[in-house]
């Protein structure tokens, strides 16, 4: 069974969209978000943003620092709940769920790739990749097998026992991508995935992202034109608003 069906996981939430035609992998509808306390010191990060990502589509988020790229990614992953609007993941509105349910949906349906990899330094590459499976209660042998399979697929079969400190930047990002894929998620979210890598290594990582995006929804935020060039569509952001949508 693919992990792309959210109905079973959220059947009790009653939050599913009733519009069958609109079950995009990710749908942000009129999302507004502010950081800081309300009043003069509040900073508006997103204003009335609507973005849709279909399965099999790679969407790039482009814009200067502070334009709202990372806020969109955090809203999609459920790490952040916007003050207004809806964020649907496979038809389920994340803004109406409890922290616990959002955490479970994130574990089951979303893989995150960070700019700075964010691997746990004291765990081996294999243990880092298997990390999401521990919380899922997957038995040790299955976790190990799954992690080794993914490390082999990202070209790190001979680095499974290495600590992150013993790997190059490109290798660490490939471990991070393997970790993002380990639960076979429906959506991959990547925040500046090549920001810490040299051009050649960055190109390798982009190839990998393009490859895994074939049957998933991929949302990539970046300043970098080369990174955005792999996207099927680029959404331009300025001051928390969508200014272009290359549909």
């Amino acid at each position: 069974m693919s992990n792309h069906a959210l109905e079973q996981a959220t059947a009790s939430s009653g939050q599913r969209s009733t519009d069958a035609e609109s079950t995009a992998a990710v749908r942000l509808e009129r999302v507004t978000h502010e950081y800081g306390s309300s009043g003069d010191r509040a900073v508006t990060a997103l204003r009335n943003v609507s973005v849709t990502v279909q399965t099999g589509e790679i969407v790039g988020l482009e814009g200067p620092s502070g334009s709202g790229k990372s806020t969109i990614l955090h809203a999609v992953t459920g790490l952040l709940v916007p003050i207004d609007g809806t964020v649907e993941l496979l038809g389920t509105d994340l803004t109406g769920l409890s922290d616990r349910k959002r955490t479970r949906l994130r574990r089951q349906h979303i893989g995150i790739v960070f700019q700075r990899f964010h691997l746990l330094p004291s765990l081996s590459a294999r243990a880092n990749v298997a990390l999401p499976l521990v919380q899922a209660g997957v038995p040790t042998a299955t976790r190990r097998e799954r992690a080794e399979t993914l490390l082999e697929r990202v070209g790190l079969a001979d680095r499974t026992g290495h600590l992150p400190g013993e790997l190059s930047g490109g290798e660490r990002q490939r471990v991070a991508i393997a970790r993002a894929l380990v639960t076979d998620p429906d959506v991959i979210v990547a925040d500046e995935p090549t920001g810490e890598l040299d051009t050649a290594t960055g190109a390798d990582v982009l190839d990998l992202l393009t490859d895994i995006g074939r049957n998933r929804a991929v949302l990539v935020a970046s300043h970098d034109d080369a990174t955005l060039s792999v996207a099927d569509r680029v959404v331009g952001l300025r001051d928390g608003r969508v200014v272009t949508d290359g549909r």
Binding site: S2, V138, T140, E152, D184, D211, R214
Partner: peptide, 20 residues
């Protein structure tokens, strides 16, 4: 690098145990 094809299915929601 091996290709990350569509045969990469893994159901994370089944088979998990609290003990594990």
């Amino acid at each position: 690098w091996s290709r990350m094809g569509g045969d990469d299915e893994f159901d994370v929601s089944s088979g998990g145990t609290r003990r594990a």
